[in-house]
Nucleic acid binder design. Structure first.
Lengths: 325, 325
DNA sequence: ATGAAAGCGCTAACAT
DNA sequence: ATGTTAGCGCTTTCAT
């Protein structure tokens, strides 16, 4: 494995000249440059990025933590994030937290060990996290990690309002809501709060459904949706994330419940699957590419030591009209 | 940022002793060890992994290349691969090839630059690839990269037979197949070939559909499926990957075509979405976790310089019974 | 058992 | 414009 000294020797110059030639930094004569290029080719030389990293004290790697890649929301988020990072000459190191605990702490350690230059997190912070000791940037997707961690979120208030108003305009009186319980004070809690507020204002009653948010499988969703529809037989509408909403449409079809006549459904997220249901799912679409872009943009700006980094960036949402409401 | 010399100074020992203590290599007296542990805590010392990497000439990173994470097959594959890599103390650097060309070559360069210790590839090799110059392991998922690149595949022959036999037993006479054209001699071509062979044997006629495999969106699938069902109105069955098969079920529902009475559908892959269609999709399920495990296991064994690495590992498939055939 | 010292392969400051 | 040299922070001989 040829090193820079081999190249220097072969080209008959010093290592400094080689380094300058390769990095396009400082002056290098035409002859020297040509001899070096020749040597590089002959010796099949590739600069050892590890040595560069050590010197520069950066790895060019950003960790991206998501709960579960099987969830299409996070798969798409990672896809978009990876592409944005690539545009900024960074690589994405991926981490699923599902099935394994303590992974977040480990990735934070990797930052301290200089293996990662930063972290984009789509998961809750680990309990008892001490942000003091972290010297590298973290950007969060829709979670509160602390006052000094920038958050990229989508317009949950508008999203909640879109949901509530759609339900009200459709004349729903009894809504079954699959929503996370408001307890951890996360940005997306705003959404459920807004939905409930507006529904109350219009005297629409609703009931929350309690599900295990760590279970990601349609079989589980189908079971849960079926159970709840049985329990609450007066329900005339369901509001849930797209995956559960889709499960709901499937259950309705199997039970002969007509949508939207007998049961209205409104989803949230605007995932691909919303196009596939029959009828297509009316849902509030989050701009995942935009959220990914904001996350990457923010972390890059911190890495570049820019000033006035916004601590909160809110991406737009829009109603994607379907046939379920 | 405290370094190993700071720890050594604080503990009143040499750097060598600190290194040995931290790595549990060589002898270190109890007293020294305790003083060092104390120093590590006080100074909040984290060993710089970059320096270690340089010395050891490894990064602990494996690149995983997939066409598109929005495809649930690859999302799940990456998820499982990441978890398996983690168990082996490696990290996964992810790369979508969609939207950007030349990414494979770049990741290969990263191997030569010691940033990646190996590559797991779920994409075709770039044209004109020269394997000679690659000195680090590559393992491929279901693609031929060359005779010296191990391949992990699933039992495409059995899978094809399961499809064909299911179609025959259901009495289909005219099958519309959404399958990749056999031209690149990839392992998964065996599947289509086997389906066709058995169908011919039983005098079942079939017609292939030509679609743009780089387009991944349900809206596109829906459009294409609709077009083909119109063109071939004598078709009584469709065979396609789960995503297209699901689109097909949606189209049928919208057009009032009863499944399975008027049109039978059989999918391939066994993705989550197969549980969600109405009726549930009959499909051939690939064992994605097992394939991921084989890929990781193989690359780890090469990295560990083990002997007798199998050049081809075939994972089992099984028929997942649904209601579409 | 431990400290000193020589690298790992590169970059950049410095002297020429 | 270019060669020499001192690190980047660690691991590992090699004496002691």
């Amino acid at each position: 494995m040829a090193g820079i000294r081999d190249v220097a020797a072969y080209a008959g110059v010093g290592v400094g000249t080689v380094s300058r030639a390769l990095n396009h930094t400082g002056y290098v004569s035409k002859e020297a440059r040509e001899k070096i290029e020749e040597a590089v080719k002959v010796l099949n030389y590739h600069p050892n990025e590890l040595a560069r990293n050590l010197y520069r004290n950066r790895s060019g790697m950003i960790g991206v933590i998501v709960p579960d890649l099987e969830n299409p929301f996070f798969a798409k988020f990672l896809k978009c994030t990876e592409i944005e990072l690539y545009k900024n000459h960074y690589k994405a190191v991926v981490c699923n937290t599902v099935e394994i605990s303590n992974r977040v702490e480990e990735l934070i350690d990797m930052m301290n060990q200089n293996v990662l230059d930063g972290l984009i997190v789509g998961v809750d912070p680990p309990p008892g996290l001490n942000l003091e000791k972290i010297r590298k940037p973290i950007v969060s997707l829709d979670r509160n990690w602390g006052s000094c961690i920038p958050v990229v979120t989508s317009d949950n208030k508008k999203g909640g309002a879109l949901v509530a108003n759609a339900l009200i305009e459709a004349g729903c009186r009894n809504v079954l809501m699959f929503e996370s319980k408001i307890q951890t004070e996360q940005p997306f809690d705003v959404r459920a709060r807004e939905v409930k507020r507006i529904l109350k204002e219009h005297d629409v009653s609703f009931v929350g459904a309690d599900i295990d948010w760590n279970m990601l499988s349609y079989e589980y969703y189908l079971k849960v949706v079926e159970k709840y529809l049985l329990i609450f037989d007066r329900v005339d509408a369901v509001y849930a994330g797209d995956l559960i909403a889709s499960a709901c449409i499937a259950i309705a079809a199997r039970k002969g419940i007509r949508i939207p006549e007998e049961l209205k459904v409104i989803g949230y997220d605007g995932l691909e699957i919303s196009k596939l249901t029959v009828p297509t799912l009316t849902t509030v679409k989050q701009d995942i590419p935009q959220m990914a872009k904001c996350c990457v943009d923010t972390i890059i700006r911190i890495l570049n030591r820019e000033e006035d980094i916004p601590m909160m960036r809110v991406c737009d949402v829009e109603l994607q009209q379907g046939g379920t409401i």
